[in-house]
């Protein structure tokens, strides 16, 4: 069964929930079975945010991603410490290396270090750091088609914020490129 089960985690404000929702919506556009389960508990009040996204061909039973993640997007250190164990062997771990100095502790997984905050700053808006990560994620997982992510983002931004599409696309492509390089080197 073709199933991508992803944990996305970071600080509130890093766009973690948006990443998860865009991914979920893109999967829905492709006619796949999808679910998005956000954390909403006390940890959110402390400033961390995480969500679990499932995209697969067969109907989804449990929407909980715990101990069986095929991939993770990790935006801050507390999230790395909390969720690294939830990856299956061979799972793909994407780390925002601009904010996390530590390396992954496991050797049975594929790790990508993406300086997403730095890349976003180079592009002139630190807030597109999440799109850098999402681009890198799509590059290494192929979970959904990039165009469907852009389609989801367009819907989300609406006409009022349509001018933000360009920088988000740039960020996404820089993320893809960054991941592609690490892939060829590795």
């Amino acid at each position: 069964m073709n199933s991508e089960r992803t944990i996305l985690a970071g600080f509130g404000g890093q766009g973690v929930m948006l990443m998860g929702q865009l991914l979920t919506q893109a999967g829905m556009f492709e006619g796949k079975e999808v679910s998005f389960l956000p954390s909403y508990g006390p940890e959110m009040r402390g400033g961390t945010a995480n969500c679990g996204v499932i995209i697969q061909t067969e109907p989804i039973s449990s929407p909980v991603v715990e101990g069986n993640a095929t991939s993770e997007i990790i935006m801050n250190l507390p999230s790395l410490l909390k969720f690294e164990k939830d990856l299956i062997p061979g799972g793909k771990l994407l780390i925002n290396s601009s904010l996390i100095e530590r390396k992954a502790s496991r050797s049975d997984i594929e790790v990508y270090y993406i300086p997403s905050s730095d890349i976003a700053n180079e592009l002139g808006n630190t807030r597109v750091s999440n799109m850098v990560m999402l681009g890198a994620f799509i590059e290494v997982t192929g979970a959904v088609d990039s165009e469907n992510v852009f389609h989801a983002l367009e819907e989300r931004l609406g006409e009022e914020k349509a001018h933000l599409m360009e920088i988000n696309r740039d960020a996404f492509e820089r993320g893809m490129e960054c991941a592609r390089k690490q892939r060829t080197n590795g």
Binding site: Q21, V34, S35, F36, L37, P38, Y40, P63, V64
Partner: peptide
């Protein structure tokens, strides 16, 4: 429950 209230599905 909290899961069904908070989760998103098509």
């Amino acid at each position: 429950d909290g899961v069904i209230g908070q989760m998103m599905e098509p």
